[in-house]
Design a protein around this nucleic acid. Structure first.
Lengths: 223, 223, 223, 223
DNA sequence: GATGAATGAGTATTCATTCAT
DNA sequence: TATGAATGAATACTCATTCAT
């Protein structure tokens, strides 16, 4: 029975891995159950012993792709006061970059397919979400910014929520563009994935400066 | 003959309008030629008198959706030195926001479907692109920033290209998230399209401050 | 009016020519009215001013392809007694060869498409057949053989009808095979149209000998 | 597993049988996958579990129709010297007649449809041809004639290849004409399949005489 | 007479899903 | 559990034919 279970679990995992590969490569709509089963080395019918349907398979793959990230994100506010703000933003960018890298191609399938998104939304509660809210990696970021504001390391006169949105937008845009760029065979020019450059030192500088409190005695100044 | 031509042109436009609606509502993959024809009030076969295939229809719809935007974007550098930097960024956000609003749902279909993206990339040269480069709304923005740097209105020690990427990321992320949010029936809570709030005053402040030159005599300071 | 008529007649002929080309190249089933109209340099709808439908166009093309041949064939019996039997057979082979060459590809379409054949059979009486019966180029040949038998130049103990069938079969088979061979890209070997070699001297010899009356005083002999 | 396999094999065979019927009755171009599936008593999609596409189905049907014939034909030269030449020709006519009867309607579809013929030619090497060359049932016949020539039972001064072409032409023409005749609803007259009569005793006599060596001491004589 | 835009029934093919083994 | 043959509804696309101009 343990053997049976582990065999089943292995099949399950093989299916998830194969599905991720195929979803990323072809997109959900063009990913066929036949190809997924083939890539996993099982029969087509086997998919339906492990997942209710193609949508369910996608959901499970998606959740697995962002597993663990929620936990790290929720711990972000604890970093307030430690190191430099810029350093913490850098750490956050790394976190969000990884998340984007993992989920951007899958996300694209969802935003391209309302039916899929609908089935996803409908089942979000049923599956284990581990506290990660889809549209809100911004929430823990806002909490972090708020905490830094109380410590005087981020200027007090910006709305923490909006600031969080700005911060989160950067790696999001980068990931999305990179995912899109990967779809284009890149005619002639660069074989490298085009799109926005990774948010590097300059991007961090701009954001950090934009958030930094004004030098003592000097107000924000005109813009 | 004129009547015939105008009849044909009317059908063409009806098809484009209907296709845009259906592509946005269902996504390219689930948009059927039958539904598009039905929405346009013509027979299915009529589609193929006006467009080589579904991909060609998509391309034309996409180009039409971003018509004119390229021109306005390319004129951005002319604004350097006029008004305030913040004001110009606000104008740019409006421009990019409109562009995103129009193209985001179509863009999603492309990033979700490599075959579609491939056919798009393959035909980009053939269709009238009006100078608008797909992955580079950032280029004219970089030119604008560069010009402002020469005028001393943006600090000289940031890379114009990276700064442009940061600036462009904001409306992009907002548009993409909004498009994704629209896919979710929003269980219970807000009927409003969720996602990042529009880049508002706070976002502009942060960016403008991050780009602003240091007060006289004071270097960039530690971050 | 004469101008109008001749303009119309020119269009009619252009259509016939174009249709013949396209029917031969693509076969009736794959020949589209669009391609035929294009090849004739007229609009698609124009076809229907000159022909009731695609079947009618085919019929007219077919009849035109074998125009005149009937007359020559019917005069064959007049050659009995003139020249040599072998020489007359050679002449006949030339005649039938030409006929085959012209009609074989069209014939193939008919034998491949019962509906087309049916519409053809149904309209045979309505169109001008000029005395040419489809399945009976054998009839005048049989008459010729009969006449030669009476003159003692062909042995009397063969049935004229069956002998005619044998004679007619040769160019028929050659033409059919040549038409079929033309369909095959001829992998590697000869770029020439394969198939049976043209009925040449040897074939004529065999037939002529087979039909020749036995030498005086010697019966047919055992076979 | 055995059961599954036999079930699959039965479906495969049912599909082949049904396809043969429908191809013969309607011709390849007008044979719809729907009708074939219906005739086989399976769903339309099932066709594509057994055959790559309609062309592949046609090819397999065609090969199956001429299965075994190649073997018998290749053994023809072994008959040289046995029985009478006329008897051997009669046997050959039977063989070729059967082959024609089976393949003529399918052959017609190929000669009427270059695309089909092309796909056929392109895949001939991939499928098992069992040594049967499409355009050359004449080859083994030529070998037989050659062998008889060495034995003095067929006159030495005819080219074996051309003689073979003549011999083969007879059943070919008869089969082709019969197939064509079957397409015509036979207006009024004979309900019997029209066309050339079967190559009967007379035809055999003519050929046998044409090939027979001259009586001792008498050369071929004038023709 | 000629046009060519529009039609819409028809076609081959795909693919998620089921179910007997 | 796993299989894979079978399903059948759905889909993009074709093409002979019509008809208003």
């Amino acid at each position: 029975m343990t053997a049976a279970r582990s065999r089943s679990a292995a099949t399950h995992q093989a299916l998830m891995d194969a599905a991720l590969r195929v979803f990323v490569q072809r997109g959900f709509a063009r990913a066929t159950t036949r190809e997924i089963a083939g890539a996993a080395g099982v029969a087509e019918g086997t998919i339906y012993r492990h997942f209710a349907d193609k949508h369910a398979l996608f959901r499970e793959v998606f959740f697995s792709a962002m597993a663990g990230m929620g936990e790290e994100l929720r711990r972000l506010p604890e970093r307030a006061g430690n190191g430099t703000v810029r350093g913490n933003l850098e750490y956050l960018f790394g976190l969000l970059g990884t998340l984007q890298e993992r989920t951007a191609p899958l996300m694209a399938s969802m935003s391209a397919d309302p039916e899929l998104a609908g089935s996803f939304a409908a089942h979000v509660a049923d599956d284990a979400l581990e506290g990660f809210e889809l549209s809100a990696p911004a929430a823990p970021v806002a909490a972090y910014i708020s905490a830094e504001q109380k410590l005087g390391r981020i200027r007090a006169d910006v709305d923490a929520g909006e600031a969080a949105a700005v911060v989160v937008a950067l790696p999001f845009a980068r990931g999305a563009e990179r995912a899109l760029g990967a779809r284009f065979p890149a005619r002639g020019s660069s074989p490298e994935p085009q799109g926005f450059p990774a948010p590097g030192a300059a991007a961090l500088d701009i954001l950090a400066r934009g958030l930094a409190p004004p030098p003592d005695g000097i107000p924000g100044g005109k813009l």
